[in-house]
Simulated assay, not measured.
Amino acid sequence: MSYLAIKAWHLIWMVCWFAGLFYLPRLYVYHAMLPPEDGAGHERFVLMERKLFWGITTPAAVLTIGFGLWLLAAGGWALYSKMGWLHLKLALVALLVVYHVWCYRYLRAFRELTNTRTHRWFRWFNEAPVIVLIAVVLLASLKPF
Rank of each mutant, 00 (worst) to 15 (best):
residue 1 M to F: 00
residue 3 Y to K: 05
residue 3 Y to P: 03
residue 4 L to W: 04
residue 4 L to P: 01
residue 4 L to R: 09
residue 7 K to R: 03
residue 7 K to I: 00
residue 7 K to Y: 00
residue 7 K to C: 00
residue 8 A to V: 08
residue 13 W to M: 04
residue 13 W to E: 02
residue 14 M to R: 06
residue 16 C to W: 01
residue 16 C to H: 02
residue 17 W to V: 03
residue 18 F to S: 03
residue 19 A to F: 04
residue 20 G to L: 01
residue 21 L to D: 02
residue 23 Y to W: 07
residue 24 L to S: 05
residue 25 P to V: 08
residue 27 L to K: 05
residue 27 L to S: 10
residue 27 L to D: 07
residue 28 Y to A: 09
residue 29 V to T: 14
residue 31 H to S: 12
residue 31 H to V: 10
residue 33 M to I: 13
residue 34 L to W: 13
residue 35 P to V: 15
residue 35 P to I: 15
residue 37 E to A: 15
residue 38 D to L: 14
residue 39 G to E: 14
residue 39 G to C: 11
residue 40 A to G: 11
residue 41 G to I: 14
residue 44 R to T: 15
residue 48 M to W: 10
residue 48 M to A: 12
residue 49 E to W: 02
residue 49 E to N: 12
residue 50 R to A: 10
residue 50 R to I: 01
residue 56 I to Y: 03
residue 58 T to H: 11
residue 59 P to S: 07
residue 60 A to H: 02
residue 60 A to F: 01
residue 68 G to E: 03
residue 69 L to I: 09
residue 70 W to R: 06
residue 70 W to D: 04
residue 74 A to Q: 04
residue 75 G to N: 00
residue 79 L to D: 06
residue 80 Y to A: 02
residue 81 S to R: 09
residue 81 S to E: 03
residue 82 K to I: 09
residue 83 M to S: 10
residue 83 M to E: 11
residue 84 G to V: 08
residue 87 H to T: 13
residue 89 K to D: 04
residue 90 L to W: 04
residue 94 A to N: 08
residue 95 L to H: 07
residue 95 L to R: 08
residue 95 L to S: 13
residue 96 L to S: 10
residue 103 C to F: 01
residue 103 C to A: 11
residue 105 R to T: 08
residue 106 Y to P: 02
residue 107 L to R: 11
residue 109 A to L: 08
residue 110 F to C: 09
residue 112 E to W: 05
residue 112 E to N: 13
residue 113 L to Y: 09
residue 113 L to T: 13
residue 113 L to K: 14
residue 114 T to V: 09
residue 115 N to F: 05
residue 116 T to H: 07
residue 116 T to N: 08
residue 116 T to E: 09
residue 118 T to F: 09
residue 118 T to A: 12
residue 119 H to R: 14
residue 119 H to C: 11
residue 120 R to V: 14
residue 120 R to T: 14
residue 124 W to H: 15
residue 124 W to E: 14
residue 124 W to N: 15
residue 125 F to P: 07
residue 125 F to N: 12
residue 126 N to F: 03
residue 126 N to V: 01
residue 126 N to H: 07
residue 127 E to D: 13
residue 128 A to D: 11
residue 131 I to H: 11
residue 133 L to F: 10
residue 133 L to W: 08
residue 133 L to V: 12
residue 134 I to A: 12
residue 137 V to K: 07
residue 139 L to Q: 05
residue 140 A to G: 07
residue 142 L to Q: 06
residue 143 K to C: 04
residue 143 K to S: 03
residue 145 F to W: 06
